[in-house]
Design a protein around this nucleic acid. Structure first.
Length: 763
DNA sequence: TACTCAGGCTTTTTT
DNA sequence: AGCCTGAGTA
């Protein structure tokens, strides 16, 4: 791991145990202790394909780590013959640590990492086979977009009619499906936009290759290309990995699926762990079909269901089960309590209607304070929102009340502009051919090298087939530039060269300091009077401090590319605020689920774009939210909400009605949803009082609330084929087909769409 | 070259 | 309502 370019040692070590064949693992091995029968199976069935369906809170991580420990102890394979893939660095790190705690240093030799990091490791060895050199660079999202934007401009298209974001999304979807530019299926005839995207995709890939770079999707795609194009290489890796372990299998996309299937072809020992009910990433290419099809894809597959939940109380499990039962096409799995719960302390799920978003934040934070006063840890409480902007109101309220909190999400450390700029300096010093880095910083801080000068350099670079830095050097030497930019550019090139000469001799963090200082970059921010400038200077200091952990700047950059750490420092007792997506895999004593309103959750766009599939994914998201809770869930929804600065009257989410009445206590603030008059209800005056009721002695719920609970109203009705309909966004259209509440409509302007009938009105 | 103003967009997010 | 991008001007 320390030297990214070092090849691992493939030679089997002189291990007598390995030569002697599998070893019987004693039944009292520490990792087997305390496993329930299903978990025990999931850990000990080592041979052949195995699908472990692990519901929320059923001890998945424990099973994964125990399985790896068991595998290593059995000596069926050496550590480097075992491949374990995860989606996040966090999951990979946690798994490695826990395996190491069980079996010691052997854990370090496992091929354990994210899909991307494993692919990178493989690709480094075979880069030439896909037209790259071994030291290719990896572009992050920002670089990708800049590059694509340039391609679009060079094609003479303008970014308004051809938004780079949209094209990039399409390209990524193709990559998710393992479609290289030459493999794209012929688009529907007449789909000009699709054809244009395909052309841009091809050009983009050519540009990447020209830069000796690839993006995240390419890591997978190139390895697939490599495997399919070179049988020898494929055989090698197939033979090498005797045991495969895959976490979060329900989140794999087509490319990852094909990759796994190829690798499993020799030994067939593939164990996939996942939960179809927690598949919430279809929008970024995840194929829930992969997990649903597992038994067909891998003949002879065994299936183990982990259904004993050790996390949540019975009402929470029952509420979640009642909700998710509304989805079709599940593998089927029922969570049941894996341990006893004291009925005296078990609380039902609660839902609460409030007047608006502000009242919601107030109510939630007061509940939090009450729990805290009672002695609960703040770090055991989470506010899980559907969309990022919902965090704002909670944040404001938490600040106002002085409750310590942490918002997870937001721009991450390595995505901040100042950090990316600093990294561009380092990249250019390390790799003079990194033209994207050159472009980013050549005029930062301002050196008087604007678009005119840059255009000149770029034209020369293109004509000569040179990287920008080299082109700049020659332009300066040839004297073809105007004196002012020539001088500035000459100094810039000389600086870069000078810093490069220091690469071997100066400690990495000192060199980074030198560069940021001498370039004037830090000074630029110090002189900036913007309120966030000081924070940026601090971030830069933090960056150089982080570099000190690495032996060289190149090895630091290699890690940054793939391991964009979420700098979530977990210290302190704080309430956490984050999106539902971000919460997957976490658990809390008390979970607050605000914003359960139609069009917020389920989100309009999910329904518009995904139809019934979209709705089911939203429902899974709700399921994920509920199952994060150990002891308490409080769902809330507002009668009124300001969305994009427009006040809207909200309807409660249909998901609320889908939770069985026995499991939930529905409350409304007085006057809300109870009077039926639609008059704005006065704020609940009790919210203004300093002392708030506790969970244990909460107020009587508003009397008529339960009886007159508003069910979600379907504003649309079933439409006849051929009927003319209107949609808020897409305008007028004609109904093509109707399946239940899903309607296929040919819109006059927006073309064919599939949506839910409630968003349509008769025209 | 650099700064200011107007217009469009706005789910979820990892690598 | 912002926020970012692009175009236009000093």
């Amino acid at each position: 791991m320390s030297d990214p370019f070092a090849l691992d040692d493939d030679a089997p070590p002189p291990s007598p145990a390995a030569a002697a064949g599998p070893l019987a693992v004693p039944d009292d091995a520490p990792w087997l202790a305390g496993l329930n029968p299903e978990q025990h199976q999931a850990v000990t069935i080592l041979d052949g394909p195995l699908l472990v369906l692990s519901g929320a809170g059923t001890g998945k991580t424990r099973v994964l780590t125990a399985r790896l420990a068991h595998l290593l102890a059995s000596r069926r394979a050496q550590p480097w013959q075992c491949l374990a893939v995860t989606f996040t660095n966090r999951a990979a790190r946690e798994m490695r640590e826990r395996v190491a705690a069980l079996v010691g240093p052997a854990a370090n030799d496992l091929w354990l990492g994210t899909f991307h990091s494993i692919c990178l490791r493989i690709l480094r060895r075979h880069a030439e086979a896909v037209g790259l050199t071994h030291d290719f660079t990896i572009l992050d999202a920002d670089d990708q977009l800049r590059l694509l934007k340039r391609v679009i401009e060079e094609e003479g298209l303008d970014v308004k009619s051809c938004p780079p974001q949209a094209v990039m999304a399409q390209i990524q979807r193709w990559k998710d499906q393992a479609l290289a530019p030459d493999k794209l299926p012929a688009g529907r005839p007449g789909d000009a936009a699709q054809a244009r995207s395909a052309r841009l995709y091809r050009l983009y890939q050519e540009r990447l290759r020209g830069l000796n770079a690839c993006d995240f999707g390419d890591l997978l795609l190139h390895v697939l290309t490599l495997f399919l194009g070179d049988e020898g290489v494929l055989r090698y890796w197939q033979g090498r990995f005797r045991y495969l372990l895959v976490d979060e299998y329900q989140d794999t996309n087509v490319a990852q699926y094909l990759w796994l299937r190829l690798l499993a072809q020799t030994h067939h020992n593939i164990c996939c762990v996942g939960d179809d009910d927690q598949s919430i990433y279809s929008w970024r290419g995840a194929e829930i079909g992969n997990i649903l099809r597992f038994e067909q894809d891998f003949p002879g597959a065994k299936l183990v269901r982990l259904e004993r939940n050790y996390r949540s109380t019975p009402p929470i499990l029952a509420a979640a089960a009642g909700l998710i039962a509304h989805n079709e096409g599940r593998l089927g799995k029922t969570l049941r309590p894996g341990r006893a719960h004291d009925p005296a302390t078990v609380e039902k799920v609660r839902s609460r209607a409030v007047w608006d978003g502000e009242a919601e934040a107030r109510m939630v934070v007061e509940e939090i304070e009450a729990l805290h006063r009672r002695g609960d840890r703040l770090s055991g409480m989470a506010i899980l929102v559907r969309v990022g902007f919902q965090t704002r109101e909670f944040e404001e309220r938490l600040i106002a009340t002085g409750v310590p909190y942490r918002v997870i999400g937001g721009p991450r450390f390595y995505e901040r502009a100042e950090i990316r700029d600093a990294l561009a300096y380092l990249r250019l010093v390390v790799a003079p051919s990194d033209s994207l880095a050159f472009e980013r910083i050549v005029n930062l801080p301002k050196r008087g090298l604007g678009n005119a000068a840059l255009g000149e350099i770029a034209a020369f670079a293109r004509a000569q087939g040179l990287p920008l830095l080299e082109a700049a050097r020659r332009l300066v030497a040839s004297g073809e530039m105007k004196p002012r930019p020539r001088k500035a550019l000459g100094e810039f090139v000389a600086d870069i060269d000078r810093w490069r000469a220091l690469l071997g001799s100066l400690a990495p963090e000192d060199l980074a300091d030198t560069i940021l200082d001498e370039s004037g970059y830090v000074a630029m921010w110090k002189a900036d009077k913007a309120p966030d400038a000081a924070g940026r200077v601090e971030n830069l200091a933090e960056l150089t401090a982080a570099i000190a952990e690495y032996e060289s700047i190149p090895s630091f950059l290699e890690h940054v590319a793939l391991v964009m750490e979420n700098d979530a420092k977990a210290e302190g007792d704080r309430v956490v605020v984050m999106t539902l997506h971000g919460a997957k895999g976490l658990e809390f004593d008390s979970v607050f689920l605000p914003g359960w309103e139609e069009e917020v959750f389920p989100h309009v766009r999910a329904l518009e774009e995904g139809g019934n599939k979209g709705l089911e994914e939203e429902r899974r998201l709700a399921y994920v939210g509920l199952t994060r809770a150990r002891r308490r869930v409080l769902i809330s929804f507002a009668a009124n909400r300001r969305i994009y600065n427009q006040w809207r009257t909200q309807l409660p989410s249909r998901f609320l009605a889908e939770i069985p009445d026995d499991e939930i206590e529905r409350e409304a603030a007085p006057g809300l949803f109870a009077g039926g008059g639609g008059e704005p209800a006065p704020r609940d005056p009790s919210w203004e009082r300093p002392e708030r009721p506790r969970w244990s002695d909460r107020p009587q719920r508003a009397e008529p609330a339960a009886a007159s609970w508003p069910k979600p109203v379907r504003r649309g009705a079933a439409f006849a084929v051929g009927a003319r309909v209107r949609h808020d966004r897409f305008g007028l259209g004609t109904v093509l087909a109707v399946e239940g509440h899903t309607v296929h409509v040919a819109f006059d302007e927006a073309g064919p769409r599939t949506l839910i009938d409630s968003y349509l009105t008769a025209a």
